[in-house]
Nucleic acid binder design. Structure first.
Length: 271
DNA sequence: ATGGTCGGCAACCGA
């Protein structure tokens, strides 16, 4: 049995619903995890996704900001939402795929949207950066994000950190740019290690090959200089690490009409 | 060195 999982920061699911539909028709992932849906749950385009084959939907959205969702062709056993940093700002949703999806051994899947952190990389003067660091600390300490060595789990999302030198267009020029500062890279890699997570994307596209999933809107032509960053991630628990057979990053979606600034990242698992 | 662009939602916020 094969399962494909996609993560994509869509920057308004309603504004970009046709682009998502196009991606679905081309790739047909079993599980589609979106971030920055910017959509209250009661306004979420459920019917459109059901028609596209995604009958099972785990929502955590709100008006205007942030928001995450897991859309699944496979039925799941349960869903969970957790608040971070004492805020109900819709940055996490989890599901468990189990018997109903045809899996004897269940898989827990977490979908995250880590705070971007603002512009100034100093928590003393920038509350947004302080929030981001606290969020990463809470992820580090959360027992639910430390699966047992025998457990099957997946973590995806816009983690808003490009932790490796080859995850950014220029390591030196981005050392003091939020998303690639040493403190956030260390915190992300620390929680990855503490949870026993394996970077599924880097297992397939190893260092030092550059790989990006995001290009700023503030660049007249993103293809000319290719100044991207790898902010979107797919990790698996150690138990699943050798089950990942393919990774796809579809850069073309950055060139779509009315694109998101992020592109979809897809993992194929052989179960 | 600086400013550059998005979407939501109706003046700026968050990115």
């Amino acid at each position: 049995m094969q399962i494909t999982v996609t993560t994509w920061n869509i920057n308004s699911v309603r504004y970009r619903i046709d682009l998502v539909a196009k991606f679905i028709k081309a790739v047909r992932p079993d599980v589609l995890c979106l971030q920055e849906t910017k959509c209250p749950d009661d306004a979420f385009p459920r019917k459109r996704f059901k028609r596209l084959g995604y009958e099972h939907i785990a929502l955590n959205g709100q008006k205007g900001y942030h928001g995450v969702v897991v859309l699944s062709r496979l039925p799941f056993e349960s869903t969970a939402i957790r608040d971070y940093c004492g805020k109900s700002d819709c940055r996490h949703v989890a599901i468990v795929l189990g018997e109903r999806a045809g899996l004897k051994d269940p898989i827990t899947l977490h979908n995250f949207y880590v705070p971007a952190g603002g512009d100034i990389p100093d928590p003393a003067v920038n509350a947004k950066f302080a929030h981001k660091l606290s969020f990463l600390d809470e992820m580090h300490l959360n027992e639910a994000l430390r699966p047992a060595p025998s457990a099957r789990a997946i973590m995806v999302g816009d983690l808003n950190v490009a932790p490796l030198e080859c995850d950014v267009w220029s390591h030196k020029q981005l050392l003091s740019v939020v998303s690639h500062t040493p403190i956030e890279c260390e915190k992300l890699l620390r929680l990855q290690k503490a949870g026993g997570w394996v970077d599924a994307v880097r297992n397939k596209v190893p260092e030092p090959t550059k790989l990006f999933t995001w290009w700023s809107y503030r660049s007249p032509d993103w293809t000319k200089s290719d100044r991207g960053r790898r902010l979107d991630h797919i990790w698996t628990s150690d138990k699943l690490a050798d089950r990942v057979s393919a990774i796809g990053v579809v850069r073309d979606y950055r060139s779509a009409r009315r694109p998101s600034d992020h592109v979809p990242v897809t993992a194929t698992l052989e179960l």
